[in-house]
C-alpha cells in the first residue's frame, strides 16, 4: 500500500514550488519531516483548501510557508493557542500545528499541556532538533546532557524533557514519536495522528547538522541520523509518568492512545445543546 501511495504521491502537488529553493540548511531533517507530512496528507486525501497549517517561530515555524494550503506563521510559542481558536471557530478545517522543541516545550509549554488536557481535534508535530537553530544554536529543553551549544559552552548541565512523556501525562489522546530515517513509518504515524479524533502529539526526531552537529562533532547528516537510529528502540512505551526526562534509549511508534471525548464535539453537544434547550425552554 505504501508503495502504491508512494507511486502516485508527488510532493510538488502540495508545495508552493514558486518559493523554492527553501531556506533549510543542507542536511537539515525538517525537509524529510515536511515530506512525511505531505505524504500523509496525500494518503488521507485531505483537500488543500480545508487544510490549515499553524506554525510558530524558529526553523520549524518557517516550514509551513512552503505548503500549498492555508498557512499561518504566528508568534513564538503560540501556534497551539492560535490553532485552538481557529479549530474551535472552524471545525470544518483540518488544523495541523508545526512547532519546534523550543517553541513547543519552552516558551509554549503551557499551551502544550493545556492543549493535551483539552483534547481539541488538532495535530501537533514537534520537530525536535535539540537546538534553537534560527537564533544561532542555543540550548533547548531537549538538548541532551553535556552537549555544547552557544549558551552551554561548558556542556549542558540541565536534564532534557521527554516531550512524549509530558504530552501523555498531560492527557494527549494520541502520542507518537518518529524519526526522519524511517520516512514511511513517520508518514504512517502522522497519518494516524491526523486521523485520530482528538489532540495528537507527534515528536519528529530531526537533526540540525549545520549548527548542532558541527558544534558537537557529530559528523555529516547521514552520520547524525544513523546515530539517532542507534539510540532508538521501536517498541512499546514504558511508564511515562515515571520517566519524565529523556532516557538514553527512546521509543518510536504510537506511545499512548485513548478515545476520550474530543473537546469540540463535547462543547457542541453539551454546551451548545444545553444553551439551545435553555433558549427553547
Amino acid at each position: 500500500m505504501d508503495t502504491a501511495s508512494a507511486n502516485d504521491f508527488d510532493i510538488r502537488d502540495y508545495l508552493r514550488v514558486e518559493l523554492l529553493p527553501h531556506f533549510m540548511c543542507p542536511g537539515c531533517g525538517h525537509g524529510i519531516a515536511l515530506r512525511a507530512l505531505l505524504w500523509a496528507v496525500h494518503d488521507l486525501k485531505l483537500a488543500k483548501d480545508r487544510l490549515a497549517i499553524v506554525s510558530g517561530i524558529g526553523c520549524s515555524g518557517r516550514v509551513g510557508a512552503y505548503i500549498d494550503a492555508n498557512t499561518f506563521h504566528v508568534t513564538h510559542g503560540r501556534p497551539l493557542a492560535f490553532a485552538t481558536g481557529l479549530a474551535l471557530a472552524r471545525p470544518d478545517l483540518e488544523v495541523i500545528v508545526i512547532t519546534g522543541d523550543g517553541d513547543c516545550l519552552a516558551i509554549g509549554g503551557n499551551h502544550l499541556i493545556h492543549a493535551c488536557r483539552r483534547n481539541l481535534h488538532l495535530t501537533c508535530l514537534m520537530f525536535n532538533n535539540e537546538i534553537y537553530g534560527m537564533t544561532g544554536g542555543q540550548v533547548s529543553p531537549t538538548t541532551a546532557d553535556d552537549r555544547l551549544t552557544t549558551t552551554t559552552p561548558y556542556g549542558n548541565a540541565e536534564p532534557s524533557f521527554d516531550a512524549c512523556a509530558l504530552a501523555a501525562a498531560a492527557g494527549a489522546s494520541f502520542v507518537g514519536r518518529g524519526m526522519t530515517l524511517q520516512t514511511v513509518a513517520l508518514k504512517n504515524l502522522i497519518r494516524d495522528a491526523i486521523s485520530h479524533r482528538g489532540f495528537s502529539f507527534v515528536e519528529v526526531i530531526s537533526d540540525c547538522t549545520e549548527i548542532f552537529g558541527r558544534k558537537n562533532d557529530l559528523g555529516s547528516s547521514p552520520e547524525m541520523i544513523l546515530r539517532q537510529k542507534g539510540s532508538m528502540k521501536p517498541d512499546t512505551y514504558g511508564n511515562v509518568v515515571d520517566r519524565p526526562f529523556r532516557p538514553n534509549a527512546v521509543q518510536t511508534g504510537v506511545l499512548a492512545r485513548n478515545d476520550r471525548p474530543e473537546y469540540g464535539d463535547a462543547y457542541r453537544a453539551a454546551v451548545l445543546g444545553a444553551a439551545g434547550a435553555a433558549v427553547a425552554g
Binding site: F72, F82, T84, A89, N110
Partner: peptide, 29 residues
C-alpha cells in the same frame, strides 16, 4: 454565546486568549 451558537473558551493564560481570538478571526469569525 452558546445561545447564539457561538464559542466561549477559557484559555490557560492571557497570552493564549489573545492567540485564540486571532485564530478564530483568521477563521472568519
Amino acid at each position: 454565546l452558546p445561545r447564539v451558537q457561538g464559542v466561549f473558551v477559557q484559555m490557560e493564560d492571557e497570552i493564549a486568549s489573545m492567540g485564540a481570538v486571532i485564530g478564530a478571526s483568521l477563521g472568519g469569525v
